[in-house]
Design a protein around this nucleic acid. Structure first.
Lengths: 392, 392
DNA sequence: GGGGGTTACTTTTGTCGCGGAAGAATCTCG
DNA sequence: CGAGATTCTTCCGCGACAAAAGTAACCCCC
């Protein structure tokens, strides 16, 4: 095993952490204030070890002994426990989500709570220009929130080594070293990741997937996104966000749309495909929300398209549950409104495609806007920069 | 962490092993003869630690310094490495697979090589009678192979805690403490497990899934079996072998058979369903092999049913690959002959349901008879009894 | 308001497992 | 037969941990 520093150099220096220290830090960061005894129990360590491990973390300023805001109603015996908490405000992180025509930015605390937002239109796709814009937004945000420790950027497309955008069809980029470009303009450490991957990491650490071993995120919006987390780690895959779901054929006799193959998840479920189907059938262009409302009100065409989408989603969820066996599936993205209108259809279809004895799917729905995607990028920065990349 | 014995009590006593010792033992057992230096590299330990760890394992008789049967052609410089190997013959294990009307038994070495076989018809389903039969077979096998260290039993059905058959529709058992029944008759430690689970474990340790992180076993035979291995560990699930695949609807317009729902994996792929479909269409009863041969020869009905089965299998494999993302899928069971006749159809269908950029599926086919199922049970006994249950 | 009980945390001590370095063993090649 | 190379062993020291003993903080109760 590696050797670690014999003595921490300075108060401001967090890293590096030994594996045991890191596990303590992550446990407190993710699962809120915890006493040393509770931590000892969770991490299967002795109390003495926890005194040893927490001491340098408190000295370095990462943890504090929380001022015990316990419920005064319950009076327990014995010495009160001393909960430890991360100093969430001691460092801030920036998260950016780059879309086709907008850049969404957030400032988060160490806990990934959003404390500020800033959006800017994106008028061009030149990498230098985008980097300049990000640097400009960073300057504006750091003005208001000084202690920024790092930047996370989420991009739709294929990203290598947390740094280089290998290919992004939306931005028409190939091999753009975005982390380097932004890093040299801001002087801050930068982490770049695929946007779906970042959202999945964020939900795994701080959201619906917290503490789970097997976890799936399915996003519905302009496209389909899929993230698989096993053993607390996200499984990377080659076709990541390069047209995911185009070839998930759900119904060979299903609709054909400009976006996807006949009867594919893309053709049945994405917002553009649903709008296209309704437009093709009725001749009128309706927004996604209007179509959902129409389906709820019983308009035949909208109801037919939305019903078909609901059955497709149910089939998809059942297949995921049957084969990947996650403990929970999180449904996210701009298109989850489908669940409110067609939720019964979805659940019924899932039931039909599952074994009666199978464990019920832990299904959670989360309405997410673009700031949630930006927050995901910030979480990735937290993971990589503060805690040395390891998951837990 | 737990304390382990200060000194090994006797030469015959293998257990317990410390975690580090166990990892060494498993690495040698699974990956063949390995030198200490190679082991140090693989396990990220120092050479000194390997001397320390291997010494008690050699003293206890689990490992030996192999008599270096190296290829004499390659002459290398320096002190020759001293490969370590498990003494595969030092202990034998019995594996039994109980089917509706037969009990298949094997004797295996520590490496899970089959060294003897013994089958007996099962004329009744009474637990006491089955236990008596197993004890009788054990006595006959131990007569020829003395150093039997344990018994593994594979049963179609739901098994709890490696000991109790919770429910087995084939045998019409509920809550039968089979491990106890056989243990008190033979005096040997007994491990009971679901047959598919046992086969999956065997392939994970010694077969196609060796050393993989994500691995799937799909069996086709009288039914459908599915096993998912993540992080080297099998994921248990509730509906295990209680009618698996009945509700995997692959083609809603597909055939309906007595065994499964319309268009389900069971109706499309299992041997009884395929025979039923051909019989229903032609009026003649044909064996599975005859149907396969007929399809290969171009008989229309057989070709149609087998083609449909091939497309169903391709769809299934693509769904598994899309959602569970295993590094390899092993196709096993009595029905894998399908791949020989309809392999091209299967591969083509997989391609159509996968993203062009997705990593190709590592697909392996293994013709397995009932003795392979019995061997799987023996592997489970090896895992639990010799190495303390931990996977690697 | 001082025990006694209870729980949380800290200090101390001993042990164990590991890495690293030096040395022994065993081969090839010149 | 010696030099070089490679593997394995021995030995030492460090650091992480558990266990146990000690300290602190709070309760209740008399």
């Amino acid at each position: 095993m590696l050797q670690f520093r014999k003595k921490r150099d300075a108060v401001t220096d967090w890293l590096p952490l030994s594996p045991a220290e890191r596990s303590v830090a992550i446990e407190v960061l993710v699962h809120g204030p915890l006493s040393r005894t509770e931590l000892a129990r969770r991490l299967s360590l002795s109390q003495g070890s926890l005194t040893r491990l927490t001491k340098p973390l408190i000295e370095s300023g990462l943890l504090v002994e929380a001022p015990w805001a316990g419920a005064p109603g319950e009076a327990r015996q014995g010495r009160p426990s001393q909960p430890l908490d991360v100093v969430a405000e001691s460092r801030s992180f920036l998260g950016f989500k780059i879309t086709d025509e907008m850049v969404y930015g957030v400032v988060t605390s160490l806990r990934s709570d959003i404390v500020a937002r800033l959006d800017r239109p994106l008028t061009g796709h030149d990498p230098e220009y985008v980097a300049d814009l990000l640097a400009c937004m960073t300057a504006e945000l750091t003005g208001r929130h000084p202690a920024v420790a790092g930047i996370g950027i989420g991009v739709g497309g294929f990203v290598r080594e947390h740094a280089v955008v290998g290919e992004s069809p939306y931005l028409r980029w190939r091999e753009v070293p975005l982390a380097e470009l932004v890093g040299e303009r801001t002087g801050l450490p930068v982490v770049v990741e695929n946007d779906v991957a970042a959202l999945v990491e964020a939900e795994t650490w701080f959201g619906a997937g917290r503490g789970l071993d097997r976890f799936v995120v399915l996003t519905i919006g302009a496209g389909i996104g899929y993230g698989l987390v096993l053993g607390g780690r996200r499984v990377p895959y080659a076709e990541e966000d390069r047209g995911f779901g185009l070839h998930w054929i759900i119904d060979p006799l299903g609709p054909l749309t400009p976006q996807g193959e006949r009867g594919s998840a893309v053709s049945l479920l994405t917002i553009p495909s649903i709008r296209y189907q309704v437009r093709a059938a009725t001749g009128r262009d309706a927004s996604y929300e209007e179509i959902l409302a129409g389906a709820a009100a019983g308009e035949p065409m909208a109801a037919r398209v939305i019903g078909e989408a609901g059955r497709a989603l149910g089939t998809l969820l059942a297949q995921i549950a049957n084969f990947a066996m996650p403990q929970k599936i999180l449904l996210a993205g701009e298109g989850v409104g489908l669940m409110e209108v067609a939720g019964d259809t979805v659940r019924e279809t899932v039931r039909a495609h599952r074994h009666p004895l199978a464990a019920p799917i832990g299904l959670e729905t989360k309405v997410s806007d673009f700031h949630d995607w930006a927050r995901g990028a910030a979480v990735l920065a937290i993971q990589v920069l503060v805690l040395g990349g390891a998951g837990g």
